[in-house]
């Protein structure tokens, strides 16, 4: 019976690159969608606000696993049968991260002091100028730490992409374990690789938090 060898490790490291790629795609895509949803959530139009709220509640109230399944099977219902698993995995993670990022960023935008909004209005800035030149730069400062923190969640949750058959780090671990059955070794190494990706991010997030001292302002 074969045991864990360098070949397996190499396979895991290649899969880890997919995990990182998937995370980046989910973050960029989720960030774009999430930003629009966050703006819709605080829009002056009631309908937009409600629609954004429903979207956020839907995403935050269902497990990512179910979200992935619905998207995976939904895509094939729409007639795209030959799309690779990567597509469903990306779409699911983008929807997931947009729902959470929207809520995080809404909080950051709203935590910019009311006086700043009023001052911008007094200076006769248009709503667009007010947002881009006054509110967002300040909100971005507050948003960095929780956003980096959420990045850790995204990296960890890419592990669920394995359920739609996408071979990322967790799925690679499962495959290797199926062939050599050394679950403890294999999954410990998988966990270590995840840790190596996530720990620097969470440390960075904590450092940012301390530097900005957002909590005690």
């Amino acid at each position: 019976m074969p045991t864990f060898s360098l070949v397996h490790l190499e396979f895991l490291l290649v899969a880890a690159q997919w995990t990182i790629g998937l995370s980046i795609a989910a973050f960029v895509g989720g960030g774009l969608v999430g930003f629009v949803v966050a703006l819709a959530r605080i829009s002056d139009l009631r309908l937009l606000r409600i629609a954004a709220m429903i979207y956020i509640q839907l995403v935050q109230g269902t497990p990512l696993l179910i979200l992935l399944f619905v998207i995976y099977f939904g895509i094939s219902l729409l007639g795209f049968n030959n799309l690779p698993a990567l597509f469903a995995a990306c779409a699911g993670l983008i929807v997931y991260s947009s729902g959470f990022l929207a809520e995080i960023w809404r909080g950051c935008i709203e935590s910019v002091p009311k006086t700043q909004w009023q001052a911008a209005e007094c200076l006769a800035l248009t709503p667009w100028q007010r947002m881009v030149k006054v509110i967002l730069p300040q909100a971005a400062r507050i948003a960095t730490a929780p956003t980096v923190g959420f990045l850790v969640q995204i990296v960890k949750n890419t592990s669920l992409a394995s359920v739609v058959g996408f071979v990322e780090l967790a799925q690679a671990g499962k495959l290797i374990n199926n062939s050599i059955y050394e679950p403890f070794t294999v999954f410990m190494i998988v966990a270590l690789i995840y840790f190596a990706i996530c720990f620097p991010l969470s440390t960075w997030s904590r450092r940012l938090e301390r530097k900005l001292n957002v909590g005690r302002r």
Partner: peptide
Amino acid sequence: VEAIRNTPLLVQVFIIYFGIAT
């Protein structure tokens, strides 16, 4: 805390389920 918060639950579940079995 750091070990748990920086690894996916899925992998933790596997380690505990299969790991304990071994």
